[in-house]
Design a protein around this nucleic acid. Sequence first.
DNA 1: TACTAATCGAGACGGTACGTCATGTCTTGGA
DNA 2: TCCAAGACATGACGTACCGTCTCGATTAGTA
Lengths: 189, 189, 189, 189
Amino acid sequence: MALPRSGPVRSEHARRAILQATATLLAERGYDHLTIEGIAAAAGVGKQTIYRWWSSKGDIIAECLLEGMVVPGRGELPDTGDIRADLTRWLRDLADMLARDEGELLLRSLIAAAAEHVEVGRRLRDVLAGPESLSGRLERATGTVPNLPRGAPVEEIAEALIGALLLRALSRSPLQPADIDRLLRAVLG
Amino acid sequence: MALPRSGPVRSEHARRAILQATATLLAERGYDHLTIEGIAAAAGVGKQTIYRWWSSKGDIIAECLLEGMVVPGRGELPDTGDIRADLTRWLRDLADMLARDEGELLLRSLIAAAAEHVEVGRRLRDVLAGPESLSGRLERATGTVPNLPRGAPVEEIAEALIGALLLRALSRSPLQPADIDRLLRAVLG
Amino acid sequence: MALPRSGPVRSEHARRAILQATATLLAERGYDHLTIEGIAAAAGVGKQTIYRWWSSKGDIIAECLLEGMVVPGRGELPDTGDIRADLTRWLRDLADMLARDEGELLLRSLIAAAAEHVEVGRRLRDVLAGPESLSGRLERATGTVPNLPRGAPVEEIAEALIGALLLRALSRSPLQPADIDRLLRAVLG
Amino acid sequence: MALPRSGPVRSEHARRAILQATATLLAERGYDHLTIEGIAAAAGVGKQTIYRWWSSKGDIIAECLLEGMVVPGRGELPDTGDIRADLTRWLRDLADMLARDEGELLLRSLIAAAAEHVEVGRRLRDVLAGPESLSGRLERATGTVPNLPRGAPVEEIAEALIGALLLRALSRSPLQPADIDRLLRAVLG
DNA sequence: TACTAATCGAGACGGTACGTCATGTCTTGGA
DNA sequence: TCCAAGACATGACGTACCGTCTCGATTAGTA
């Protein structure tokens, strides 16, 4: 497998190396220690190659989010028909991930990036609470349980759940299983 | 018997100038453009005077939060007895504030600071959702409405509301009056 | 005429601007008021460009000496065949230069730099008393006058003359014409 | 032994501690690493006590020179009647001292101080080459040897000898015994 | 005897400069 | 035309000292 060096067309190899390095460094060092020079060095790439295609750190992170390179839990929301049980399991898995390794650091890094960069904010919301994820699952569940009738404000329910998660990450109070139960009681009655 | 402490004493004037400059610059320029040198210059103070008493930008911001110098909405949560009406009004006022001036920039700056600095995170949660603010108001309202019985998970309800607000700030989707109604329907039934 | 900007090779334009600024500031402000930041500002250059190529103020001054940018009297030692007359004229010119303008400040600055930096010390001695300057002229004169026979310790004679000059600069007692005559009598009999 | 603490009269204890600390630090760390704060700390003294009585580092060093606290060789110039032998021995002792320990660092520190501070310059010259030291000894020897007749320029001879010594210290070329012989040949014929 | 006034150790203050790190722009030479 | 490499001007970092300024304690001389 040849390693492409340069030429008149954009190097996909360089692009992926940059995104991969960004995702790795973001999880390992945190957003405030993430530097363009560090990304370039880790990716084995010249700085100019980064600036040619992206305009800022946030821009790269936004693309990482699009490619699903930073949030591992994407799309794993189960669908057994029992919406409360599914949400319980999903939130517990998320909480476990945050409690382990660099999970919380990564989430806080994404929040910091979102706070500075528009597109990261939008995509972070979409990935975590958007129609292809949480709010879509909720929409499909409307009408199956008393507390989630047709026409329920699924977008806001999703935002409330994810927002509570973020707030817990910011205040460094990990969600315990009992907290998750109470949280679901709060938004699903 | 008091032990005599020799040497000059800390300048309260310098301390307040630094906190004030930090609060002002944070709202005006945002967290990522907030620099220690900028604070020192705006406060008319030497850098060393800052480093002598605080260890980082986050440390100063945390003290600003303690002193109530950055969050304008503190304590204004009304209490008319009608919890839903009170929350509606309070959230509308907050949303108005965010929509105006540098409100959203300030909130995103606080989120960025919280993402990097432990103490900012804790205090931001306390100021916005804590027992002396939102969750306390909710606790007092338990039992007065069907959807908020005694023993309701008020902490989680508060976190869900505030979390949704933060997520909207991050995704730059200002809360409209209709959104607020739906959000309250989501958490209060 | 194009002004060279930057690139992957060292900028000769920046190098010369730095040396020139150093020589100028050294003569104008003195060694103790010479700062890297001042040099950078006067040369229109970033500090890092200085630190990339030199390790200290002394290092830059040593290079200035190599390029002949600080000691104006270099190589002007006359050679009429009459060594005593030549030395008298040369020393008088030097003394005049020191008495004028910033001459003495410059010499004291070079001494201060030499006292701290090895290479400046060596090069200062070479420029003032070395074989390509004073001691060389003396060597060529051996055998032409009774008091300077072949095998005379020309190196030490040169060092004694220049050393006396430095000591006078340090004690702020400018060499008068009569002093020069006595000094030459001391070392040439 | 009572340690005097404070009162309305100047503390001789503090004065001597400051001079001693200055002399010690000058020999140990060199002039450029000598700081007022370092002196105060080493002397166990407040900064203001230094600034109350001296105006600068050079001022303290000048007083150290007056008190004979830095130049150990003072007054040891022997007088056996044989001026050349006496000078040879004296210069060899000086050269030995410079070669040992921090001797050269101390001399270069004094030169650096002299280059910046008028009074240090004057006193350094007096201590090393002045009438109470070298030039006085030379004056008394006039008429005893053919090469040092009455009326010989003893001041200039002394300056030439000491100047050569300083220049060697600056160029880090220690005087060897053979160098000393040649130097004496240069100035005494 | 008490008071006054100068001095002491200590150290906070507004600053300047340090040497380092990262920014975003530019240029080189190779593919 | 793109790439890796890296020099450039800029600007912020956190540290070390500068010289000035209190602070409370100490103590010699005056009241």
